[in-house]
Design a protein around this nucleic acid. Structure first.
Lengths: 154, 154
DNA sequence: GTTTATTGGTTTCATTCGTAACCATCCTGT
DNA sequence: ACAGGATGGTTACGAATGAAACCAATAAAC
């Protein structure tokens, strides 16, 4: 398994940025996921939904999807799952009865607060492992990508 | 949909690094995927497998998985798909008949060369959009993550 | 004021995925 | 030489995914 120096090849997968980016992102996510999966058996869509509803007092499913970059079917399923746990409640909008406003219940907010602290701990740990320079570099690089990729979602 | 400044929340999903990283990576990958999907209807596992076999003259399925960070079932399926296209051939190892050596056929290598140039074009374009500073920052940041995440695969 | 288009959200369905079980082959120890 | 593991690779199966169809409800067109 030695790289082939022969002419024409010349793509080192391990240096190809889209590959590196996805690999790094998936591994980091996988590690972070262990925490909330272990803790409550939550999936990533559920975690993102919880995080988003927690961040905004009251929000619709559509807005959750926009804010957390999730397909509406993922949101729909995650909302149902969280509802089954009694971590959130829906309220149909009076003026437009298609819309449902989502809010966390008291246990839901408790879970949210707990998960926030786990997230912060994880991020701090990651930062300390990476070192300040790399952390800032990553922040800058991701910022540049975010500027490029469309609908600036905030 | 205004952020809730109330006490206790304090997690901005859009600033949470694991989230940002995955979102950026998925979007970049999605865009790159359009190219090889349009061109040959290839999936990501197939593209990675092709890229890996092209990079090494002759390689086993297991090594493909290691090099491209793919689960062995993904590799197995991708290899079969590429084989059906007649882009690769398998050769059972004489000494150890569990092992199969994989090589590209002539059309396979042709497709590989084409995809490499697409990849390089994509990367160049991405670099020019991001700008040199951000590009280098990203490279540095990803390098740091790679150093942290396990089996240093090279 | 009725048709027509749009929108928020759910459901269906085909595809993709990973875990685990599996098969065949090889290696180890005795 | 034979039992018990490992190992390369495939298969089976349940869970997750997203595109598209769908359902209500609202808004626009006329």
């Amino acid at each position: 398994m030695t790289p082939d120096p022969k002419a024409g090849s010349i793509l080192l997968l391990e240096d190809f940025l889209p590959y590196r980016l996805l690999r790094a992102a998936e591994e980091v996510s996988r590690r972070f996921a262990r925490h909330y999966k272990d803790r409550h058996g939550m999936t990533r869509p559920e975690w993102r939904t919880l995080a988003t509803i927690g961040q905004f007092e009251r929000i619709t499913a559509k807005e959750v999807g926009q804010h957390s970059s999730m397909h509406k079917t993922k949101v729909s399923r995650a909302v149902r799952a969280l509802e089954k746990r009694r971590w959130l409640k829906r309220e149909t909008d009076e003026a437009d009865r298609r819309i449902e406003h989502l809010e966390l219940t008291t246990p839901g907010r408790r879970a949210y607060v707990e998960l926030v602290s786990i997230a912060e701990l994880f991020e701090r740990d990651m930062k300390s492992r990476l070192g300040g320079d790399a952390w800032r570099a990553l922040d800058l690089g991701l910022g540049a990508i975010e500027k490029i990729i469309q609908p600036p979602r905030r």
